[in-house]
Amino acid sequence: MTAAPTTIAATRLEVAGHSVLLTFGPGLETVAEEIDTLWSHLLSADDDGATPQIRLDYALAGGDLPAGTVPLQARPEASYTVSGHLTREVIHRLIGTRLLLHAGAVAHPELGTLVLVGASGAGKSTASSLLGRDGAYLTDELTIITPGTFALTPYPKPVSKHDPELGAKRDLALPGLGLRAADEAAAPAPAMVLLLERIQDEDEPEEGSSVTRVPLSEALTRIVPQTSSLWALPGGLATLAELLNSVGGALEVRYREAAELEELLRRLPPPEHVETVEIEPRPGDAAAGDDTAPAPGTIAAAPFRQALAVESGLFVLGQHGAIDLPGLAGLVWDLLADAGPLTFDQLEQLVVEEIGEHPESAALVRGAVAELAGHGWARRG
């Protein structure tokens, strides 16, 4: 029988509305001290005996580990590993109830609440730590948004940055970066959603820095991969589109250094607003998740979770991914999702009824079906 875990240090936190208990076994004393320092702004004094909502018990990696513990190596990047575990636990408990973005967020005293979205290497942590100095730091990694009100729940974890000497990411305490965590349980709805694009090409002209509005379909294409389980949030895709419309459209920010950002964000292009219509799967058919193959000789829409009619066509979300379907491809998919399995002749007839006769209608519809099937969004019987 494996021995019960031995605890030499424990840290209690209140994180994004969740009570958290982190315990550390022998050999992790230095890590435990660092965690206390890094997360000091979220330390909880409560020890009323209640079971924490999130508990992680760490033991030094190597040998036989006590049951129920998480192995952890006593390395300089250990605190970054712990924050990653905690972030995943918070995400797990919020899936299906909040819009969860892999994004930084700050409350700027003049520019409002800013959400900073970008792929790895886009500079979210650096931008969050600079823009947050004059206001409140909300997060550098997990932006938690309540559907309807779009209020943000702060998740002011330590800032994670790449350490060139270490060759890996490590966490940095907020005071050392001149940051103050938000005092409130919720921050105002975003004033801007920023798509960060850091210019790293030395040959690009100095005047390459810019701020431009991004069409809704393109913004969805770029932001959906930076969400967590969007398909599990009822109306999640529509919620994301509503958020973008509420700020006048996403902004692509191309920049070289984070120090440029505040000045760039003071000269914004006009807002843009786009009408969208939510398309719901019909209960009992393939679109609602029934994987039954369509009858021989017919074509059907593949199962999907959510879809929107946008300015250029359709945007479809499934558990396995998302796709923008402009023009004819969007129309064909919409007809299949609405009518259920169709023969090719039936589908072509519906297309003609929608957009009129065309001498190459058969070839065009076949091409659209092939495109949809090739991307996994339509199935042939």
Rank of each mutant, 00 (worst) to 15 (best):
A3F: 11
P5G: 09
P5N: 07
I8Q: 11
G17D: 10
H18D: 15
F24P: 00
E29C: 05
E34Y: 09
T37M: 10
H41C: 08
L42E: 10
P52M: 04
Q53H: 10
R55L: 13
G63E: 07
G63F: 05
D64P: 11
P66I: 06
T69H: 01
L72E: 00
R75W: 12
Y80F: 14
H85Y: 12
T97K: 15
L101W: 07
H102D: 09
A105E: 10
V106Q: 08
V106T: 08
V106C: 08
G112A: 07
L116M: 13
L116N: 04
A119C: 11
K124R: 02
S129C: 05
R133H: 02
I145S: 00
G148K: 03
T149I: 04
T149S: 11
F150G: 03
A151C: 12
Y155G: 01
P156A: 03
K157R: 15
K157D: 05
V159T: 03
P164K: 03
G167D: 02
R170C: 11
L174E: 06
L179Q: 04
A181G: 14
A182R: 12
E184P: 07
A186P: 08
P188S: 09
E197Q: 15
R198Y: 04
S209F: 01
V214I: 10
P215F: 11
L220S: 01
R222Q: 13
I223W: 02
P225K: 05
Q226S: 12
L230N: 00
G235D: 01
G235S: 02
G235I: 02
E242S: 13
N245G: 05
S246T: 02
G249T: 00
E252C: 09
E252W: 02
R256G: 03
E257N: 08
A259S: 14
E260P: 00
E263N: 10
P281Q: 04
G284L: 08
G289Y: 04
P294I: 06
A295T: 12
P296C: 08
I299D: 02
P303D: 07
L308V: 07
G313L: 10
G321V: 12
A322I: 11
I323P: 06
P326N: 11
P326W: 11
L331W: 09
D334E: 15
L335T: 09
D338K: 13
L342T: 07
Q346H: 14
V352G: 06
V352K: 05
L364K: 07
R366M: 12
E371Y: 11
L372E: 01
H375Q: 13
R380F: 10
